[in-house]
Design a protein around this nucleic acid. Structure first.
Lengths: 229, 229, 229, 229
DNA sequence: GATGAATGAGATTTCATTCAT
DNA sequence: TATGAATGAAATCTCATTCAT
C-alpha cells in the first residue's frame, strides 16, 4: 500500500520493494545485496547510491511501516470509541497490513521485532512506543471501569500484541496465502479473546436467561460500552 | 545445568552451554564458532569433533529444551486437572524455564521460533507439536463445555502461546534480570487473561447478582482475585 | 592561484586547485573523485569533462609545477653567477615554492617523486631532467675547479636535491605552517652545507703552499662563517 | 638478512617476505592481498590468520627493519669513534641494508617514510627517532668543536639522511641491480660530502698549532682530503 | 558546459569447515 | 580426544568511470 503509492520508476522505491521481497523470501542474513539489485533490476552499485548499507535498507523498510502503524494506533486511541473498539481497530489495521503486504509484515516480524541482538535492539524505542500506546488504552479502560484492574496495562498490551504477532507468525510459516475469511476471523477472535480476558464481568443481567450463553460475542463489548457511556 | 543430564566436565556439554551463552549474548549469526570455543575454553577444532556444524549446535540446544517442554505439556494434558489448571501448568513450566535458563530461552525464542527462513522452518513440525497439544487441551475444554466454541482451538493455542512468548520477549529485551515476583505475576496474568478470554460465561446464577465480581471463574481465578483483593 | 595564469572562475582551474588541496589533505589514493568535485564546488561529472581520469589531474598538477621548476633551474644555470649562487637560486626557488604553495609541493613530493611504481615511474624522465641539470652545474663547477672532483656530479645533484626534499618532507609532516625565518634559514643551510661539501678546500692562506690553485670558491663559505662569528 | 634468518617453513615469515617482494614490485596500493598469498604460496585466508590487515603487514615489515636501523644508529653513536666515523657507520649500515635487501628498503622508502597521509604519519615518531639520534651525533660534534655551529643539528641530520635516501631512491628507480662498487662509492661520497659540509675548516696550517684545541677530530677530514689529493 | 544517477569490476575481509599432527 | 594452522568461497562495500539529460 504505502510502498506502492510511488511511481514504479523511482529506483530507490524499486530497491526497497525488491529488498522487501528478497528479505521475505530468503531472510535478511541469507540474502546478498546482489540478490536485491537483481530483484530490483538495477546495477549493484545503485543500491549503495541510495543506501549506505544493507542494514539501512531494512531500517528504512521497518521505520516506514512502523511509523504508519504508530499513527494508526494513535488515531484509534484518539477516537471516541470504546476500548474494545479501539483495540479492534488496531488489530484490524495490523491484519490488513498483512493482507496487503504480507512480505513486508513478514520481514518486520521475523527480522526486526524479535531480533534482540540486532535490529530489534536498534529499534527498541520505536517498538515499545507501540506497546506503550496500547498499554495506555488499557490503562484508561481500567480507569473507566471497563477493564478490570487485576491485569497490568503493560501485560494487557503484551498479551494483545503477542496474540496478533503469533497469528501473523503462523501465517508467515504457512507457505500459501491466507484466505480472506481467515484474516477477518482472526481479527475477531483476537479481539474477542483478549478483550473478554481484560474486561470486567458483564453485568449478569438477571433476565439474560439461561442458555443464551454466548449468542453474539459482541455482548460484552456492548455492555462495556454502555457502562462507560 | 538444569538442561544437562551429563556432568559439567563433559566437553560436549561445555560446548553446548558455552554456545547457549554466546548465542544469547551475540546472536547466532553474529557470533563465530571460535567465540563458542573460546567461551567453552576448548580448542577450535573440538567443536567440530562433537558437532558437524554450527547449525547443529543450535539444533541440539533447541531440541533438548523443546522436547522437555513437549513432555511437560503432555503431562499437564494427561492430568486430571481443569483446563485452566492445565494451561496454568504449562505457562508455569515456560516461565520457570526462563527463570532458570533465561539464556537458553532467549536463544530459542529469538533464533528459532521466529526464524521462518532458517531454524524455524527446520523445526516447524516440532514447534507445531506444542501448539497442537495446547489446541487439544482447548478443544477438549470446549467439548466439556468449559471453554466456549466461538474461538477455534488453534487460535486459542496461538493466543496463549503468543502471550507467553511476548512476555518472554519483553524480558529478553530488558537487560537486567527479571524479579521473582514479576515472573509469578506474569504467569498468573497470562492464565487469568487468556483463560477468561476462552472460558464460557460463568453460569449467570441469577442470585449471584451484583458485587460477586470474580467469584466463579473457578479456583485458579479465585486465587488471583484474592491476591489482588 | 600563484600557479594559475587563468582566472579563478575557470572551472578547470578550480578543479585543479581543489584537487591539489584534497590530494594534500587526504592523499591521492585515499581521496575520491567526488571529494575533488565537492571541494571545487562543481558537479561530479564535470571533473571528467576536463580530465580523462583521476590520474590525469595529478599528472597535470605535477607537470605544471615541475616545468616551472625546470625553467627556474635552467635560468639559474644560464646566469653568470658562481656555482654556489646558482645552487642557491635553485634552493631558493624550491623553498619559495613551498612558501607559496605548500600543498602543491606536498603533493609533488609525497605522491610523485617517490612513487616508484606509479607516478614517479611515469614522470621519471621529467624528474631526472632536474637532477641532470643540477648535475650539469656541478660538473661545470668541477671543470672550473670550483668544486672538487672526488664527488661525481650525479651524486652532487642527488645530495643537493635530497637535502632539500628532506627538509620539505619535514615541513610536510609538521602540521603547522612553517615560520618565515625558518624557510630562509633552511635555504641558507642547504646551500652552506652542500656547497661546502662539494667545494674544494679554501685556499689555506697565501703561504699555504704552492698549487693553492683556486682561491675564490671559498669566498662564499668564508662569508657564511664570518656571519656566524 | 634479518628477515631470512628464520626457517623458510615459517608461514608467517613466508608471508612477510612475499609481501615485501610484492609491495616492492607493484606498490602497496596497487597490489592485492591475493597477490601476496600467491607469491607466498599459501591460501588467501592464512594471510589474515597471521595479520589483521594488509596495513599490518607493511607496519610489521617497516618496524622490523627500522628498529634494527635504530639500533645500528645507537651503536654507532655509543662508540668511541669520531663524528665522521659514526656517520660513516650509519651510512654504511643503510647502504648495506640496500645491498642485501633492496626490496625491503624500496618498500620502506617508497611506501612509508614519505607517506605523509598514511604510514609515514603512523610511524612518524619512529621515523623521527632516527633523525633525532643523528642530530644528537651532530650536536655533540659541534660541542666538541669538530662540526661548526652555523648548521643546526636538526638540519645536519636532515641533509645527511636526505642525501642517503635520495641515493636509495635513485637506485630504486633504476631497474637493474646496483653494482657493488657503486654502493661503496655512494657511501663514501655521502660521508665525504655531508661531513665536509658540516665540519669546521681544517686546521689552516701547521703553525696554527697551539690553540688548535681539537686536533684529532679533524683527522678523518684531513685523511679524506689527503686521500683526494 | 554541467549534472548526478547509474554501472559493475574488484578490493578487503570474514569465517565455517577441514585436516595434519 | 584435542589442537589450531590452513583453506578458500563468499559477502559487503568502494569508487572510477560512463552516460542520458
Amino acid at each position: 500500500m504505502a510502498a506502492s503509492g510511488t511511481a514504479a520508476t523511482d529506483k530507490r522505491r524499486m530497491i526497497l520493494d525488491a529488498a522487501m521481497r528478497v528479505f521475505a523470501r530468503q531472510g535478511f542474513h541469507t540474502c546478498r545485496v546482489s540478490d536485491i539489485a537483481d530483484e530490483a533490476g538495477v546495477a549493484y552499485g545503485l543500491v549503495y547510491h541510495y543506501f549506505s548499507s544493507k542494514d539501512e535498507i531494512l531500517d528504512t523498510l521497518f521505520l516506514e511501516r512502523w511509523n504508519v502503524m504508530l499513527q494508526a494506533i494513535s488515531e484509534a486511541d484518539r477516537s471516541q470509541r470504546s476500548p474494545r473498539e479501539k483495540l479492534s481497530a488496531i488489530a484490524g489495521f495490523i491484519v490488513d497490513s498483512y493482507r496487503h503486504e504480507p512480505e513486508l509484515m513478514k520481514v518486520i516480524v521475523v527480522e526486526v521485532t524479535r531480533a534482540a541482538n540486532t535490529f530489534g535492539r536498534t529499534h527498541l524505542a520505536k517498538i515499545r512506543e507501540a506497546y506503550e500506546q496500547i498499554a495506555g488504552i488499557v490503562a484508561r479502560a481500567q480507569a473507566e471501569g471497563v477493564f478490570r484492574s487485576e491485569i497490568t496495562p503493560e501485560f494487557g498490551a503484551l498479551a494483545f500484541y503477542g496474540s496478533i504477532e503469533q497469528v501473523l507468525t503462523r501465517w508467515i510459516f504457512d507457505r500459501d496465502a491466507v484466505a480472506e475469511d481467515e484474516l477477518d476471523a482472526a481479527k475477531t477472535m483476537i479481539v474477542e479473546t483478549i478483550c473478554r480476558g481484560l474486561e470486567r464481568d458483564a453485568a449478569p443481567a438477571p433476565e439474560a436467561s439461561a442458555g443464551a450463553a454466548l449468542a453474539e460475542p459482541s455482548t460484552p463489548a456492548r455492555t462495556a460500552a454502555s457502562r462507560s457511556a
